[in-house]
Amino acid sequence: MSSSSFFCALTLSVVQFGAVVLVAPLISGFRTFMSARLTGVATPPLLRRWYLIVICCRTAWPSRSDTDLLTRRAGVIASIAAPASLATVLTASVLVPTAGSDLITAHWSDFFVITLLLLAAQFTSRLPALNSLAETATRGFQQSVSAAVIIPSLFLMATLFFCVSATTNLDIVLSGMRNGSDFGGNAPFVLAAGALLAAAAPESSEPVPDVCGPDRAMLMLACDCIFLVWLTLAGDFLWPDTLALISGHASAARNLGAIFTGFFFWMLRCTVLCIVLASGSLIVAGPAGRTRLKAVAALLLSLFAIQVLFSSHLSATAEWAERRQQTYNTGSDAP
């Protein structure tokens, strides 16, 4: 990697990191807005989520003498879980290409690492809920189960990517998809994106009521970032051509333009996927039904994607063999 490419990759990574933190509450606010609009209730403003986070940041924990035992205990767990969850999801976000590929972390962006880091962040963000009374704890564990049911489907998706690019490195997989797959287009990846979208569907982004202050703000931000990173991953597989390509040989203005275009398309992708998810939330189902739907949808989509890939792979191989045979015949007929 030349020095200019390295500098571009570093700049892109830093900008992307900042953009994820800034945009995550906005996207979450937009999803709430769309859900409210589609269900016909009063719509909250887009910036409400940011407003809540700032208010929580400026609110102090109750002083030690005023607090009861429950609040104090919630404080211990939340003070560890909130920064850990946010740090985990931000680490994962550094590895995911949002606006452009060839990040400085491209070498480490493995599909297993990213997805399981996101799940680790989801589990960690539910820890304060598990520390509460039965009703909240049950809901928190139910949300953890809802996140865990996606894991088997993630392994199937990794199989799909490995079948195409012979690796699970996300950057290489996306580069291969952008260059156009020989094997039956990108239909399997659209199905895989659907499965990831099922994984992204959040149960609830509100932390437990016992937690307040900066910890609550961090938990809210972590939930928003988790949602955004899942959405970004799904968008990457859905439309990999919109990722900007940074080249060390191109001029700085050209690279800057590519990055801006990449960020624009990223926002567009996320917005469209938010509308899709908000429409999906119109399906009325209980918490168990929703988890069941999520697991089954992700599993079926992943399996179907693998089947489509294998069938197209086989037909492409047959076509290739036929072409080869024709070429051979033409060669042997020629004098």
Partner: peptide
């Protein structure tokens, strides 16, 4: 977090 906790003004 520590910084935010030290400058928190509202109960």
């Amino acid at each position: 977090r520590r910084k935010a906790a030290s400058v928190s003004r509202f109960a």
